[in-house]
Amino acid sequence: MSTTDPIDLACVEPAFVDLTFVGLEAVPALGEEQHTRGLERGAGGGAITAIGAARLGLRTASVSPIGDDADGEFVRAAFAADGVRWAGRRVARTSLTAVMPVGSERAMATFDNGEEARAEEIAALSPRAVVTSLDRLGLAPEGARVFATTGDETARTLAREGRLPDGSERVHALLVNEREALLLSGADDVEEAARQLTAQVPRVVVTLGPRGALAVAAGGGRVERADGVQVDVVDTTGAGDLFAAAYVWADLMGAPELDRLRWAVLYAALSVRVATAVAGASRLDALAEAGARSGLTLPNQHAITHTKEER
């Protein structure tokens, strides 16, 4: 992709390097050492969504600051290999996460370089859509379709404040997992949590792990549900990031809500069969083949246009 190509999706969340310890039977206790059968290095954090979206055919950019170090070169090379435009800046060090998957769960330890994307870096791309966390909503340029995410720490902070941040009305869809939805709403039931959150954002999408996902639109819309896809789980790291990539792809392609959910659930499920999220991020032809077996038809691949009026 050239630096003059229009951008469908700008990924604002910080990119990391993931070091994944493959084959652990349990997370080591304090003072205990365990050996694994493998160690995988892959792009992580916001890079997962960016690469997943690019493999599905979206013109994608990452605006994450990345270190001027060996790990940074690794992430930039991963972006280049999948046609992701890197529109961030060089900083001292690259963020890194050690991932320890055990069955369907995982433990993680993270070094965060503390650097953030800047609003002007994102605006310069004139993206059609943006994926960003709730605490970074102010970075999204006017006119972009905003897909908002959150994490456990941010969800806890917002739960204490009792409301979503200013600018939430701009959000096209809030993508959260079940735990985050319950934290943000204070509800005991996930459907009720989603309905309550639509008082603050137009659409709420909740991932339910192996049970699939649901979505509710503001204004009393009905709950749409997509069932989970049963697979052998190796590593769930990044499944939510890839769910987001596929949901945005299907949304921009004009797919109806239920199909968006089904494509996103399928994409996430396919990813957990191998170690590291990027290794599990399917390309469009593989997703289309898996979707056909589930009765899904690809949305209109010509739905995204890049006209002057749109920019």
Rank of each mutant, 00 (worst) to 15 (best):
T97W: 00
G46C: 13
D112E: 14
D135T: 15
P127N: 04
L30G: 07
R59P: 02
P65S: 13
T132A: 13
A77F: 14
R128W: 04
G45R: 01
L58H: 08
A70C: 11
L30F: 11
E116F: 11
A124R: 05
A98G: 05
R93S: 14
P141A: 00
A29Q: 15
A129F: 07
A117D: 07
D82V: 01
T94L: 08
A53E: 05
G46I: 09
L30E: 10
G31Y: 13
P127W: 04
V99M: 06
D135W: 14
G44Q: 08
A47F: 04
E32Q: 15
G114K: 11
A77W: 13
A124D: 02
V63H: 00
L134R: 01
A123G: 00
L139E: 00
E40L: 14
R118L: 03
M100A: 09
D68M: 07
P65K: 14
E120I: 01
T49H: 07
R76G: 10
P101K: 07
L30S: 12
D18V: 01
E142P: 10
D135P: 11
L19G: 02
A98H: 06
A77R: 15
V130N: 03
E120G: 02
M108D: 06
S104M: 02
P141K: 01
Q34Y: 08
G57S: 02
V12H: 04
A87E: 04
T94M: 06
R76W: 12
M108P: 00
A26T: 14
A124M: 02
R90F: 12
L39K: 13
R93E: 14
I51Y: 08
Q34L: 15
G57E: 07
V63T: 15
S133H: 13
V131R: 06
G67F: 08
A43E: 13
A119H: 06
G38C: 12
R85D: 11
D82G: 02
R59V: 05
A70K: 11
P101M: 05
R106F: 07
L56A: 02
I122A: 03
G72N: 11
P14S: 15
E25A: 15
F16C: 00
H35G: 11
T94A: 10
A50V: 08
E142I: 06
V75A: 10
V17I: 10
E121M: 01
L24M: 10
E33T: 15
A26W: 11
R106E: 03
R128A: 11
G45M: 02
A78L: 05
G88Y: 08
F79L: 10
A117Q: 09
G38Y: 12
Q34P: 00
D135I: 14
P127M: 03
E13V: 09
S126M: 01
G31N: 10
R55H: 09
T20P: 03
I122N: 01
A87Y: 03
L134K: 02
P28N: 14
R59G: 04
I66Q: 09
R85Y: 09
T110H: 00
A107T: 15
M108E: 09
G83H: 00
A81G: 05
G67K: 12
G114S: 09
G103K: 06
I51R: 07
R106N: 08
G103N: 06
V99K: 01
L19Y: 11
E105V: 03
G83S: 01
G23E: 08
G88C: 12
V99W: 02
E33V: 14
G52F: 04
A54F: 05
E32V: 14
E13Q: 13
E142F: 04
A107N: 09
F111Y: 15
